[in-house]
């Protein structure tokens, strides 16, 4: 390729050769800039964060008296918010996608729902934060709590789930549906036994992407789920466990990072949290690729 293009440029006028060379240089330069930038970003974060990362840091609650730094509460809060959000958003998103691909007959309604989904997808997170504060924390009386945070994140992740589920529903062959209906099953039976099982990988992909967005989100959770760095008091019974989810507030990983860096100017733990986030982002990327790859194979 290289050899060939050189021989082509030989016979060209000066202007065209200059154009060719400049453009090629520009393309390679931007590629180099981006690669260097990426390498620098990763290297810098890892280099500054890893020395501070230890089992103790991950598994303890911070205590000023004992002089311990720890992000266990942040890890647990993140997990809490992820699970609570997925439990709410998954049925809604999958149901919505099923309605759009299997049931909807009214074109106007479909385009209305799709418009709404696109609007939600393009909304900046700070808007979800504002609305979450008024609607969930104040109007619905949840206060600043992990649950209010989860509800606000439901609005944010709904488009992701709807879109990926819809994509995978579209790949289910029409003949499956016809076969099922011809054997006398009703529509719901068909959806439950034929369509949904063959679109599981799309739904899984959606979940993974949603988890990625939730873990990376900070603005929404800062205002709806709080910034506390203490471990919530989790009760030992099932009922108390859920009650604590309603009541407790606290920082997730991203908010903890913000806390360390901006509020306390304590940068070493901030970088350690950044490394944790980087690792999570990396794992989510791989998981999404795997799930998406299976989807594409079909």
């Amino acid at each position: 390729m290289e050899q060939q293009s050189k021989s082509i440029t030989r016979g060209l006028s000066h202007r065209r050769r200059a154009y060719d060379i400049t453009m090629r240089a520009l393309v390679y330069a931007s590629a180099a800039v981006i690669c260097v930038l990426l390498a620098f970003l990763m290297g810098y974060i890892l280099l500054r964060g890893i020395p501070h990362l230890s089992w103790e840091f991950l598994s303890s609650e911070e205590s000023v008296i004992k002089g311990i730094e720890g992000i266990l509460p942040a890890l647990i809060n993140t997990l809490y918010v992820v699970i609570a959000t997925l439990i709410i958003v998954l049925p809604l998103g999958v149901g919505s996608a099923i309605y759009l691909t299997e049931y909807a007959t009214n074109r106007r309604l479909v385009s209305l729902i799709e418009f709404a989904t696109e609007t939600l997808a393009g909304m900046p997170s700070i808007i979800f934060a504002l609305v979450g504060v008024i609607v969930f924390c104040e109007f619905m009386g949840l206060g600043i709590s992990l649950l209010a945070g989860a509800f606000s994140l439901v609005m944010m992740t709904l488009p992701t789930i709807i879109r990926t589920t819809q994509e995978s529903l579209k790949t289910v062959p029409q003949s499956y549906r016809e076969g099922s209906l011809a054997l006398g099953s009703g529509k719901w039976h068909m959806v439950r036994t034929v369509v949904l099982p063959s679109s599981v990988d799309g739904i899984v992909t959606g979940c993974i992407l949603a988890v990625g967005r939730i873990v990376g989100e900070s603005a929404v959770l800062m205002f709806t789920a709080g910034m506390g760095m203490r471990l919530a008091k989790y009760g030992d019974t099932f009922g108390k466990f859920f009650k604590s989810l309603f009541d407790s507030s606290g920082a997730t990983l991203t908010v903890a990072l913000y806390n360390y860096a901006k509020e306390r100017a304590d940068f070493e733990p901030a970088f350690a949290v950044a490394v944790v986030l980087l690792i999570i982002a990396f794992l989510i990327n791989i998981a999404a690729k795997l799930a998406g790859g299976r989807l594409k194979k079909r």
């Binding site: 998103g93 919505s96 049931y103 808007i127 009703g186 529509k187």
Partner: peptide, 30 residues
């Protein structure tokens, strides 16, 4: 079965309208 069909259809319709509801809530409250 028919009842179930109708019911599920309504459930899915409600799910579908949730996104519209969110957008309305966001716009209204803002």
């Amino acid at each position: 079965k028919d009842l179930m069909e109708q019911f599920m259809k309504a459930v899915f319709l409600v799910c579908g309208l949730v996104a519209v509801g969110f957008v309305l809530v966001i716009s209204l409250y803002l």
